[in-house]
Computed example of a mutant assay.
Amino acid sequence: MRTQSYNVLFLCTGNSARSVMAEALLNVLGKGRFRAYSAGSFPSGQVQPIAAELARSVGYTEPLRSKSWDEFAQADSPSIDMVITVCDNAAGEMCPIWPGHPITAHWGTPDPVAADGDEEARRRAFHSAWLMLRRRVDLLLALPLEKLDHLATQREVRAIGQTAANHEK
């Protein structure tokens, strides 16, 4: 029996930290069941070093780059099954029209780039965002997507975004 592969696009305004970390997590943990991408409405043009370090720590070896969501609205782009915003700004912005009516959800995650303080405080903020995204990716991976219809899948993926970050170990 062939299991369907799902294409997921994580969006954030700058595409430099949260969306990139979510992309790395889902690509590694999804083990081929998912193909994750990330993009931004106003990409910064660079990936935050701590985000790249965390992606490498989980075994993600693909090159990470900050890119515009316009790349995924082209006719020759991968067909996207799910679009998940991870920052509140991107959730409120006017998104492109995605072909195929993908499932949409918002998984708001505090911006580690905005963290004040020294290097240790910044690292804690990135680690906290990483753990929140990891928990949500784990919940997505646990869904029996092959057994859910479009509306049920949308409801479940949106509910994951309501999951609190209090599951840190």
Rank of each mutant, 00 (worst) to 15 (best):
A51H: 08
A115Y: 01
G45D: 03
I80G: 01
L29E: 14
S57M: 01
G92K: 01
P78R: 02
V86N: 04
A39E: 05
Q48E: 13
G40R: 09
S38T: 03
A114L: 13
D88R: 14
G32A: 06
S44C: 11
G92P: 06
P63S: 09
P78F: 06
L29V: 00
R123D: 07
G32V: 06
K67C: 09
A73D: 12
A36L: 01
F34T: 03
D118T: 07
S79P: 09
P96W: 08
Y60N: 03
P99Q: 10
D116M: 12
V47K: 01
T61R: 13
D118R: 02
P43T: 03
G117L: 01
Q74R: 15
E93P: 04
S44L: 15
A73G: 11
V58I: 15
G117Q: 05
L64N: 02
E119K: 06
P110H: 00
P43Q: 01
A75D: 09
G40K: 07
S41A: 06
S79T: 14
A75H: 07
D76P: 08
D70W: 02
L29P: 04
P112V: 04
A115R: 05
Y60Q: 05
A114Y: 02
P112W: 03
I97D: 06
P99M: 03
P78K: 02
I84H: 00
A121E: 14
Q74L: 14
S77I: 02
A51D: 10
V83S: 03
R35A: 09
G45V: 13
S57I: 03
I80M: 15
A52S: 13
F42M: 11
V47D: 01
S79V: 14
R65K: 12
P102D: 10
D76I: 03
T104E: 12
V86I: 09
C95Q: 15
R122P: 06
E62L: 12
S68P: 01
W69V: 12
R56Q: 14
R33N: 11
R123H: 08
L29K: 11
Y37C: 04
E53H: 13
Y60T: 01
M82D: 03
P110S: 02
R65E: 15
A52M: 11
G108F: 04
K31F: 00
V58T: 09
A114R: 14
P63H: 00
P43I: 03
P112K: 00
V83M: 09
V113M: 06
F42N: 13
I50Y: 08
I84N: 00
Q48P: 00
R65D: 12
T109C: 14
V58E: 06
M82S: 03
E93N: 11
A105L: 05
A73S: 15
V86K: 02
E93L: 15
F72I: 11
A105R: 02
A114S: 15
A39K: 04
D88Q: 15
S66K: 11
H106F: 10
A51P: 08
P96S: 10
P99I: 11
